[in-house]
Simulated scan of single mutants.
Amino acid sequence: MLRYILALCYRAAYLLHHALRLRPGAPLEHSKLIVVGSFRTGGAGKTPFCIWLCKHLAAQGKTVALLAHEYAFDEIKMLRQKFAGNESVQVFATRNRYRLAHELDKSCKFDCIVCDDGFEDSRLVGATTILLQWESIPTKISELWPCGGMRSLAKDHDLDHDKSSPMVRILRCEGGNPAVRFVIDKVLHFYSGKEFVKKNAKANIVCGLGNPERFCSDLQDFGIEIGHKFFFKDHSKAFAAQFEKIIQNRPQETFVISEKDAARLPAEFIQKNEKSQIFVASQTTEISTEIAQNLF
Rank of each mutant, 00 (worst) to 15 (best):
98 Y>N: 03
64 V>G: 03
136 S>K: 12
119 F>G: 01
170 I>S: 11
67 L>T: 00
6 L>E: 11
146 P>W: 04
1 M>I: 08
106 K>W: 03
30 H>R: 14
29 E>R: 12
90 Q>C: 09
43 G>Q: 13
52 W>A: 07
272 K>E: 15
63 T>F: 04
163 K>Q: 13
40 R>Y: 09
60 Q>H: 06
135 E>V: 02
269 F>D: 01
179 A>W: 00
245 K>G: 01
263 A>E: 01
238 A>T: 13
236 S>I: 05
225 E>S: 14
143 E>H: 09
240 A>Y: 03
206 V>G: 02
250 R>S: 11
209 L>Y: 11
257 I>E: 07
277 Q>M: 11
149 G>R: 14
57 L>R: 12
278 I>W: 05
64 V>H: 04
162 D>I: 01
286 E>H: 11
202 K>W: 09
29 E>A: 15
152 S>V: 06
188 L>R: 12
2 L>M: 07
191 Y>R: 12
3 R>V: 00
195 E>C: 04
281 A>F: 03
108 C>A: 09
252 Q>S: 14
276 S>R: 06
12 A>S: 10
229 K>N: 02
84 A>C: 11
192 S>A: 12
281 A>G: 06
138 P>L: 12
64 V>W: 05
229 K>P: 00
292 A>D: 08
116 D>N: 05
81 Q>N: 00
108 C>T: 02
103 E>N: 11
128 T>W: 07
287 I>G: 01
213 E>H: 05
275 K>L: 11
137 I>D: 03
151 R>S: 10
152 S>L: 13
157 H>R: 13
215 F>L: 05
211 N>I: 09
168 V>Y: 07
92 F>L: 04
187 V>H: 07
158 D>G: 09
201 A>R: 08
25 G>N: 06
